[in-house]
Amino acid sequence: MEQPFTRIGKRLTAISLLLGLLLAAAMLLGTAMGSSSRNPLDVIDLLRSLGQPDTTQFTIFWKIRLPRVLLAAMAGATLSLGGLVFQVLLRNPLAEPYILGISGGAAVGAISAMLLGIPFFPGVTTSAFAGSMATLAVVMLLASGGRAGGKDSLLLAGVMMNAFAGAVIMFLITMSQSSQLHHILFWLMGDLSMADASRLPLFALILPCYLVIFVLARPMNVLLTGREAASSLGVNVQKISLILLVTATLMVSVVVCLSGLVGFVGLVIPHILRLTIGPDHRLLVPASLLGGASYLVFCDLLARTLSTNGELPVGIITAMIGAPLFIFLLWRARQ
């Protein structure tokens, strides 16, 4: 008899290898190119300069480009994985931290702490986490209560929370006398330029989150076929949902603190991957991680090199790609 089951082992290796290569290529290009060198062939120069510690290129690589590319990779991986987790928990393929207002809530928390002059870690990150958890609670309450309860009510609640968070942010910025206004506005649109090596230790907070989600990939599959059914298959639905919810919100909050509001990564990447490799989360989790990382490194490269007078916030690039796709998916779901 022909083998009808999705065998994980070989496919996992193949997918990881392929997307791993993609990420490596994106990171190599990302470190080689920038405002001072727009030619992809600069990769060769870069590799040559790595042997010569005293050159300018060597300094640019280690002090500026590498931390930034690493940050972009981490932010992309986290947002993509965060989107995937919310899609499972809310059983809605259109769920995403930015669309649900969760990133917005984190931004309100982060800006409040920044304006109060609280140190970045743990002050700003904790405040951002509190903001996003509060937003998530309100969104889920709005979507579950009321007779409209359905997919659209979840998205509507998210849109409203996003608008509200936006208003609060503008209010805070207008009221403040901060000299960092320009910087904060830039950050809001999604910006990786504040990346420096001092922020990289936050990886330590995010890596365990990836591990938790990876281990829960199989229960995530079962959860998707219904809560009752999952429970009778031995999944502790409440406990696992709570762990996933807190983990995803935590890692997304940290990324918002580092890179501002970068939207739609968690929509674009899991969606494309689901179309190509199917709905099995034992494959989707690692694939979203690598795919999201490559995607944001690439978008950041565009943000740095597209314009000749200064760089663009990367959030503009991701929104320009993501928002039309979202509209297309919504339209197709209605057909």
Binding site: F5, T6, R91, N92, N221, L224, T225, G278, P279
Partner: peptide, 15 residues
């Protein structure tokens, strides 16, 4: 059974 996410029959049974 919720069918928002298109699992294959064999994989569903294997769950």
């Amino acid at each position: 059974l919720d069918t928002n996410f298109p699992f294959r029959v064999a994989d569903t049974v294997l769950m």
